[in-house]
Write a protein that binds this DNA or RNA. Structure first.
Length: 492
RNA sequence: GGCGGAGUAGCUCAGUUGGUUAGAGCAGCGGAAUCAUAAUCCGCGUGUCGGGAGUUCAAAUCUCUCCUCCGCUACCA
């Protein structure tokens, strides 16, 4: 059976990882874990983009050769993913031999197809910037040392697939999401698509994958990078493995790299005669005070600082629940603390305490007897449709529907008052507490993709190791675990 | 400029193909309770659904127009 295949972009190593990288990767991880929760097999790919001019320049600046530079940058990402509890299936680096080889296979294949040709390129080149600049940039007058140069390069016949791509985007609602991005791409495709220059002469740029049919050139970094999505599952090398994974079910990307993913990439796949990814989903940006976070503005929130202060799972929960997928969201300490306290400390954490303490005090810490699988709470569970929310990428909505259920457990407690009931009808109080605890167990499992560690702590407190979402997983007669505040309130 | 999107309660957002008194969470106000992390529960919104006009038995939802904000227009999660 085919895996649910989910990807993040491969991150460019000229910069240390920041909250944007962390967000996309946590999102992918959470989606992947949710898919697993509903019994789907997943393949989750992330990695690093290590070629290109900017990496070469960053390396030179540090007095290192490019490969060494990449090798020192990579651990920063790996370390962060470890700290964030990212369970990727594969981590690919574009300098790895396995990737280089497949990129070259593909270049050869596309070349043999007749979709790559050599041509002269003429344009304005900025010597200071070491790159070609656009007409607009030239007109801006901001660039000095500009001269018109002519250069021979290899081009990919992207224009050949323009009509086919337009039709695909128009016909398939799921292909580019959210729909506003789809319109954006269609708008872009109204102009004539030019062919894509996919080579750089080594005289100008050395750090890249050598073009297999011309040793004087390296591959343009985007052409190289996008291929990671199929080099990891071993395109052209392992048919079975490839078909178990490809096509990707979703490429998660930031809205800034929409064009490369929804124009370059699909046309490349068309040339290879491969199926296209089912969905390309562009999410928004995290803003602080309505501004994009960026290094130059110095308003970057360090993911590590947040984790150190509040714990990994609180950060994961905040990022996943606060952003409406596809829109921008504003990050603030205030909203972080508010959400943490109201959702995690008050609603969920406190509920764990009250239920487990009642069982501890009144039933010697033994899960009471119960055979009541039709009750207010079990009925409400059917309101949560995980798969539907996943299919429509409504992460915030999914979390909210689970938290609604958690709140309804608090309501159930108020309504049935087991702390009073225990004095009148102990068996009945036991049933109430069982239902509350069992609901909590299921709700916790449902939150485990978002908060893997904290969920385990709650399940330990409830004395459960059952991983079924079906009612009745909590075993009467078992002993509950020790009771500690799972989410201590943040007091400002 | 061209193309596209958005404007719904103090804040963040839901509102399916037009149809019963426009919703949720948070914040605020009042009350109940005291098992629990001073947590929880209940009640409370005269919101011009950006303004105006139109279509219709009926519009936040369709049409037109105006206003405001934003995105894309080949660097970048």
């Amino acid at each position: 059976m085919k895996n649910y295949y989910i990807t993040t972009p491969i991150y460019y190593v000229n910069d240390k990882p920041h909250i944007g990288h962390a967000y996309t990767t946590i999102l992918a991880d959470t989606l992947s874990r949710f898919r697993q929760l509903i019994n789907q097999k997943t393949f989750f790919l992330t990695g690093l983009d290590e070629h290109g001019l900017k990496v070469q320049q960053a390396a030179e600046k540090n007095g290192a050769n490019p490969q060494d530079h990449c090798d020192t940058m990579a651990p920063a990402f790996l370390e962060l993913w470890k700290r964030l509890n990212i369970q990727y299936s594969d981590f690919i680096r574009t300098t790895e031999e396995r990737h280089v080889k497949i990129v070259q296979n593909i270049l050869t294949e596309v070349y043999n197809n007749g979709d790559i040709y050599k041509d002269k390129y003429e344009g304005w080149y900025s010597i200071a910037e070491e790159r070609f600049i656009t007409k607009k940039e030239l007109d801006s007058g901001l660039f000095r040392d500009v001269k018109k140069i002519e250069e021979e390069n290899y081009f990919f016949k992207m224009s050949k697939y323009q009509d086919q791509l337009i039709k695909k985007i128009e016909d398939d609602k799921e292909f580019i999401q959210p729909s506003t991005r789809k319109n954006e791409v269609l708008g872009f495709l109204k102009q004539d698509l030019s062919d894509l220059c996919i080579s750089r002469p080594k005289t100008r740029l050395e750090w890249g994958i050598e073009i297999p049919f011309d040793k004087d050139y390296v591959t343009y970094v985007w052409f190289d990078a996008l291929i990671n999505y199929i080099s990891s599952p071993k395109y052209s090398e392992d048919k079975n493995n490839f078909e178990e994974n490809w096509p990707a079910d979703v490429h998660l990307i930031g809205k800034d790299i929409l064009t490369t993913h929804s124009v370059y990439w699909p046309t490349m796949l068309m040339s290879l005669d491969l199926p296209l990814p089912k969905t390309i989903f562009a999410h928004g940006w995290w803003l602080t005070d309505e501004e994009k976070m960026s290094k130059s503005l110095g308003n970057i929130i360090s993911p590590l600082m947040l984790i150190d202060e509040f714990g990994v799972d609180s950060v994961r929960y905040y990022l996943m629940s606060e952003m409406v997928l596809g829109l921008d969201a504003t990050f603030s300490m205030d909203s972080f603390i508010k959400r943490y306290n109201s959702d995690l400390a008050n609603d969920l954490g406190n509920l764990v305490s009250r239920v487990s303490t009642l069982i501890d005090k009144n039933f010697d810490g033994i899960i009471p007897q119960c055979n009541d699988d039709k009750n207010d709470l079990s009925n409400q569970l059917s309101n949560i449709d995980i798969e539907e929310k996943l299919n429509t990428f409504k992460m915030d909505g999914l979390i909210q529907s689970i938290m609604d259920f958690v709140r309804s457990i608090n309501v159930y407690m108020e309504k049935n008052q087991p702390w009073k009931l225990v004095k009148e009808d102990k068996d009945l109080a036991g049933i109430v507490l069982y239902n509350a605890a069992e609901s909590l167990r299921i709700a916790t499992l449902m939150l485990s993709p978002v908060m893997p560690q904290k969920s385990q702590e709650i399940l330990d407190t409830l004395g459960s190791n059952d991983s079924s979402l079906e009612w009745g997983g909590l075993k009467s007669g078992e002993k509950i675990g020790s009771i500690n505040p799972i989410f201590p309130r943040i007091v400002k």
